[in-house]
Write a protein that binds this DNA or RNA. Structure first.
Lengths: 267, 267
DNA sequence: CAGTGGTCTAGACCACACT
DNA sequence: GTGTGGTCTAGACCACTGC
C-alpha cells in the first residue's frame, strides 16, 4: 500500500494519525492511527467478540481487517498488553487476559507472608459468610456509579492462610450484571472470584484502585479474624473496574498483618 | 545499511539480536540488539556521562554511535522511558529522569489526603530530628548489602501536612556514597530528599519496594505524631534502589492515616 | 512444515519547540 | 527554518510452537 493512500476500515472510519493522511491537523481531535486501532480492539473485547482466554486474530489478520500495516496493529496490541488486557505468547498468538490462569491468579492480592515462599499463592481456605441482595446505600451507589437504592449484591467472606483467618472482605456488586449470583455459586467455586466473574457473568476486572488505612479492629472484625478487639489491622478499600473505566465492584477488607504484609513496588 | 551487515559498535561488541546476524542462535545467551543498546545507555547513565535532568544525545546520534538503526535505539529508549529512567519530550529531546521536577516530585510518596485536592503535593513542613553516623546493625546491613558494622548514616525526621505531624521517618544510607551528608545540609534543603541526593551525591533512586503493616504506635512514635500511644498507624518499610538494582536507602516510616490514606493502583 | 509473534532496517512524513 | 521525538509503512528474517 503506497504511503499516500488514506487508511480505510471495514468498521468505523479512521481519521488522522496516518502520517501521510491529508486530514491530519484538521482539528484538535487528532489521534494516532494505532490509538484508533487500540480503541477498535478494545471495543471488540468489550462487546465479547473474544472471551477471556481466547486467542484473538493474528496481527496480519487484524492489519488486513483495519487496512493498516502490521506495525501499527503491533503498536496497538503492545499497549493493550502492557495494560494487561491482552497477553502475547510467541509462536502461539495473542490472548485475552484472564484471572483464571496460574500465573495471573490473585493478581490484585498484595498481601504476602513475611517470611517463607517468594511466590505468592492463593489463600488456603475461603468461607462465604453471607451473600444477599439489598438496595445500595448512598456511598456504595456513588462509587459504583449507581443510584441510591438500586439493587446490589453484598458478599462477605473470610480468607485463611495456613489455618489462620487473615482477611475479612465485604464486597458489593451491581445487581444487573451479576444477576443470579448466589452464595452457593460462590461457595462451590474453586479459584479466584474474578475468574468466576469472567466465566459466569462475562465481567472482566482490568484494574483497581486501593485506599489503605490502619485502624483498630472493630469487635466483629476481631472476632472473625481471631484477634483481640482493637488490634491494629489494615483497612483496604478497593474499587475495581472493567473496560472503559466502568466500576464493577467495591470491596472493603480488613487484613491481619501480624505475619503478612502488603507489598508494593514503586517506580 | 544493508540488512546483512552485522552491527558494529564503537563501544563493546554487540552480538546476536540483529535479525540477519549470523551469530544468532549460537548460544543460549541470545539477547536482542535493542536490549544490548539499552544496556549501553544504562551504563552511560550509571557512569554519570549524563546528569539528572540532562538531555541525552538524539536518537539519530545514538544510532550512529552504536551503528544501528534509529528504530532500534528508539525501542531501547522506549523501555528506559517506561521504567522511568528517561523522559521523552516531543520536539525537545530525551532527558535523564529526576526527582527535582514539579511533575515528578514525591513520586514515591503514596500518602494522600482523604478528601481535598486530587493532585498530590509535598508536605507543608519537614523537621530533621537527627542525623548521625553509626555502624550498620545486622538487619540494616543485610538489606543495604553491606557488612554488619559498616558505616551508615541514620536520619530521622517528621513531615507535617497542614500543621499536623503525619509521617515519622527513620532512614539509613550507606556511608560511602553519602559521605559528607550532615543534618545542616538536610535542614537547609528545600524540595524532595531524593532531589538532594541526585544533586549532591549523584545518587538517583529509580525504584523501590515497600512492605506495609498496621501496628500500634509505640510511645515515641505517638509522641512525635501527636497521637495517643497505641493508636493504629501504618508502618511502611521501603528499600530504594539505584541503577542495576543496587539498594541505596532503607527507610522505616510510620504514617498517620486518620485523615490521609495510602493510595495504590492495581493493574 | 506453516503460522505466530519478535526483531531489525530504511525511508517518508507529521507534530512540536525553539530560534 | 532546523532539530527533536512521533507515526506509519514495507519488507526481510529470526525464534518459538505445534502439526
Amino acid at each position: 500500500m503506497p504511503a499516500q493512500t488514506p487508511p480505510l476500515s471495514d468498521t468505523p472510519q479512521l481519521v488522522g494519525g496516518d502520517a501521510s493522511n491529508p486530514w491530519t491537523g484538521l482539528g484538535p481531535s487528532f489521534s494516532p492511527l494505532y490509538q484508533q486501532i487500540k480503541g477498535l480492539i478494545l471495543r471488540s473485547l468489550q462487546a465479547g467478540e473474544w472471551k477471556a482466554g481466547d486467542m484473538i486474530p493474528s496481527e496480519l489478520e487484524l492489519a488486513a481487517r483495519f487496512r493498516v500495516s502490521q506495525g501499527t496493529v503491533r503498536k496497538a496490541i503492545d499497549e493493550l498488553a502492557t495494560d494487561n488486557l491482552l497477553v502475547r505468547r510467541q509462536g502461539k498468538g495473542t490472548f485475552v487476559a484472564t484471572h483464571a490462569e496460574q500465573h495471573t491468579q490473585y493478581r490484585f492480592l498484595r498481601l504476602v507472608p513475611d517470611h517463607n515462599n517468594p511466590d505468592q499463592q492463593g489463600p488456603a481456605s475461603r468461607r462465604i459468610i453471607e451473600c444477599k441482595r439489598l438496595r445500595a446505600p448512598a456511598d456504595v451507589a456513588r462509587q459504583l456509579q449507581l443510584r441510591t437504592g438500586d439493587p446490589v449484591l453484598e458478599v462477605r467472606r473470610v480468607l485463611a492462610f495456613a489455618d489462620t483467618p487473615t482477611i475479612l472482605e465485604e464486597l458489593w456488586l451491581p445487581g444487573g450484571p451479576f444477576k443470579g449470583l448466589t452464595q452457593d455459586t460462590l461457595a462451590q467455586d474453586q479459584g479466584p472470584m474474578y475468574a468466576l466473574f469472567e466465566a459466569q457473568f462475562g465481567v472482566r476486572m482490568v484494574r483497581a484502585e486501593e485506599k489503605i488505612k490502619a485502624v483498630a479492629a472493630p469487635q466483629e472484625v476481631a472476632d472473625l479474624l481471631a484477634l483481640p478487639s482493637g488490634e491494629p489491622v489494615l483497612m483496604v478499600e478497593r474499587l475495581a473496574y472493567t473496560y472503559n473505566d466502568v466500576p464493577m465492584e467495591l470491596r472493603r477488607a480488613h487484613y491481619r498483618t501480624d505475619s503478612h504484609h502488603y507489598r508494593n513496588d514503586l517506580s
